[in-house]
Amino acid sequence: MPEITYRQAVKDAMVEEMRRDERVFLIGEDIGTYGGAFGVSAGMLEEFGPERIVETPISEDAIVGAAAGAAMIGMRPIAEIMFMDFILLAMEPLVNQAAKARYMFGGKATVPMVIRMPSGSGTGAAAQHSQSLETILMHIPGIKVVAPSTPYDVKGLLISSIRDLNPVCFVEHKLLYKEKGEVPDEEYTIPLGVADIKREGSDITVVSSGIMVHKSLKASEILADEGISVEVVDPRTLKPLDVDTISKSVKKTGRMLVVHEAVKTAGWAGEIMASISETPAWDYLDAPMRRLAGKDVPIPYNPKLEAAAVPQVDDIVQEIRAIVHNKY
């Protein structure tokens, strides 16, 4: 299998779907000549033209509103929000219109749209361009939230998201664009709502997504030398959440740590822990479930503080050690 970047995998998914289905189009800021803020759509304008690579004024409200409307009349829009932080400007069309239409019209209208949004810190972009706001989106019924961690996952999941009949918020961590991985040439899809065990282990289950999957895997390597066997579960889709896979893993290991970059308070780690405590896995827990998440602060501009604000490999190592050795 050829190795490609996460960025390339996102582009390939969009290009292949646009070739396959003429209803699919891309809408957003600077996505044409400039190729997108992170270069994802570079070259797409040349292939598909301005009719299908729709550049908009600086208005997220307009991007999402237009995409939602287009979806309702039968198109398959992919909207690109330059930074996830800006989705807040489009909450009205997303939350009150796109998320509700299918329910309010008894299924007569569907809203098959994808909103792609780069999230997270690590690029020195400071507080207004570094947030991880997926929990806010997860809270809204009618929206699916996908956050892939590898080139393979991102391509398969983006294709599934484009074909899904509901609004899908597609979260791409900025630091992942350069990440390389094997992706098959032939067409494939990954169903939404199915978690993936990224590493098998027996002592503790670590649930993490996006960039934190990679950090958790590095931490697992370090801990393996100490005889701690870590299972890393990547939900891939945060909503709907594959509680079953996580529950089975926790039943096996008896311990769970949830790691995410989003701030801890009301973050999705709490949601996962609550879900697990409602499953039979509860009776197999041999330690309190714990969260390792972003500090409750806006992401700082200073690079040292920026790194300190979100979980790093060393933090994950220490937290797992503490849980496994009952030292917290």
Binding site: G254, W282, D283, Y284, L285, D286, A287, N326, K327, Y328
Partner: peptide
């Protein structure tokens, strides 16, 4: 821990007779 409680009922071990090694 929940796991200890489950095992104590499965194996018929009285929990208050067990010395805990956890925190």
């Amino acid at each position: 821990t929940p796991a200890a409680r489950r095992l104590s009922s499965e194996r018929d071990v009285a929990l208050d007779q067990v010395e805990g090694s956890g925190p």
